[in-house]
């Protein structure tokens, strides 16, 4: 099963080629890091995969479904059901408890809060926060908030988890804890794509895609 397949994928912002003719193949169950310096186009590529940006050229399939051909509404529904997203700054709702934050994606999909409680709490247990389910974001550390965000990304049983600089706001020790959680998800068969500019973070993935000036750098024929 192919999780992500792209060919000649491009995204222009005015005259800037943020993503330039990218070919991509990511198999289901892979943990892939997209690396590169600031402004290389890695976050735009992730946003294209997430359906948050539209390509200006090329093809893109997620789970072997052509997402370019979808209408805006179809793409939003597709994203809710098939893709979980983790952002750099967690983006939790401050007034909600941890488990309620985790349940939010199910509510958007028509679920009722009370009915989702058990599953939300189970997911918090999976990321090592079984004893913090009723805490609000302000009562949690940065690393804990990011783990809540990871649990939230899993709520709708996505085929794909996308993480945009998930350790960008964390110190190295806390960052390692968050990356270990992503590594464990991948070990359980979850496809994970993570954008990072940190080589230490990328080393948690099975492989890296390196971007420079909007393009994916080809792998060298052989490592030294």
């Amino acid at each position: 099963m192919t999780a992500v397949s792209a060919s000649g994928l491009s995204c222009l912002f005015g005259t800037v080629r943020a993503v330039d003719n990218v070919d991509l193949h990511i198999a289901a169950g892979e943990f892939v890091a997209i690396e590169g310096p600031s402004g290389c186009g890695k976050s735009t590529l992730l946003n294209l995969i997430a359906g948050l940006e539209s390509p200006t050229a090329g093809s893109l399939s997620i789970n072997e479904q052509d997402v370019v051909a979808m209408s805006e509404r179809e793409r939003t529904l597709f994203r809710r059901r098939h893709i979980g997203v983790v952002f750099q700054l967690y983006d939790l709702l401050p007034s909600l408890m941890a488990w309620q934050n985790v349940a939010v994606p199910a509510l958007l999909d028509g679920g009722r809060l009370k009915a989702e409680e058990a599953r939300a709490k189970e997911l918090l247990g999976r990321v090592g926060l079984g004893d913090r389910t009723d805490h609000r974001p302000s009562e949690l550390s940065g690393g804990e908030q990011q783990r809540v965000a990871i649990a939230r990304s899993l709520m709708n049983e996505p085929d794909l988890v996308l993480a945009d600089e998930p350790t960008g706001a964390l110190d190295s020790v806390t960052g390692d804890e968050v990356l270990s959680v992503l590594r464990e998800l991948a070990a359980d068969g979850q496809t994970v794509i993570m954008v990072t500019h940190e080589a230490r973070a990328a080393a948690y993935a099975d492989r890296s895609i390196y971007m420079l000036d909007g393009a994916v750098e080809p792998e060298p024929a052989s490592a030294l």
Partner: peptide, 11 residues
Amino acid sequence: AQRSAHQARMR
């Protein structure tokens, strides 16, 4: 190639 070798060792 050196970047690739470093990444492999880091993994």
